[in-house]
């Protein structure tokens, strides 16, 4: 920013950004590398906010579960890529929003296009399953699945659907011929049931 006009434009953008966050009830947003330290910091921050707001123990536990699994999905999968492109080095966007009736946890990270089919199939399968089918799949995967080199157990999506009881909403947006941006959002009802 080499002159006053640019600074003013930037600050106006920040205000628009702030208003936009407020309008979408976003309480936490982060872009960058998702490490274990980040995971710990965000979960403990959200946890203390929820405790302050007297959110029920049940809702707090579910939000905590979903946040951990979403953050670990990015930290464990986003650097599977060999590309040196900054998009692929364990980075992503992470945001939490809090509405009147629900919390939502959204992640976005770059994926190679040849992963889209596998991800879509996995998410569609999980979304269609009822409680008992999910339970069966979780047990099967726990018994038969192997821990990946990064420590992923392939259980994250199943766990999110089981804990929230809601479908995982997702979307792929093209970045280039080979890559897309993968967005995933999970909602947790604030009704204590």
């Amino acid at each position: 920013m080499d002159n006053k006009k640019d600074v003013k434009g930037f600050l106006e953008f920040v205000y628009e950004f702030y208003k936009s966050m407020k309008a979408h009830e976003i309480t936490l947003v982060y872009e960058g590398e998702i490490t274990h330290q980040i995971t710990k910091a965000f979960t403990s921050l959200t946890e203390s906010n929820m405790a302050k707001e007297d959110e029920s123990g049940n809702v707090q536990r579910k939000v905590f579960h979903v946040m951990v699994e979403c953050l670990q999905n990015i930290s464990k999968h986003a650097d599977d890529f060999t590309s040196s492109d900054f998009l692929f080095s364990g980075r992503g966007i992470f945001l939490v929003s809090k509405g009147e009736n629900e919390y939502s946890v959204t992640t976005g990270n770059a994926v190679e296009n040849d992963k889209i089919e596998e991800l879509t199939n996995m998410l569609e399968t999980i979304n269609k399953m009822d409680k008992d089918e999910l339970k069966g799949l979780y047990k099967k995967q726990m018994k038969e699945g192997r821990l990946s080199e990064k420590g992923g157990a392939g259980l994250g999506f199943i766990d999110i659907k089981r804990k929230t009881g809601k479908e995982l909403e997702y979307h792929f947006l093209p970045i280039s011929n080979d890559t897309s941006f993968f967005l995933l959002t999970s909602t947790i009802s604030r009704e204590d049931n």
Partner: peptide
């Protein structure tokens, strides 16, 4: 009081 999915496999 809490364990993540990766831990669930090790607990098994």
């Amino acid at each position: 009081v809490y364990f993540n999915t990766a831990s669930s496999k090790l607990l098994l």
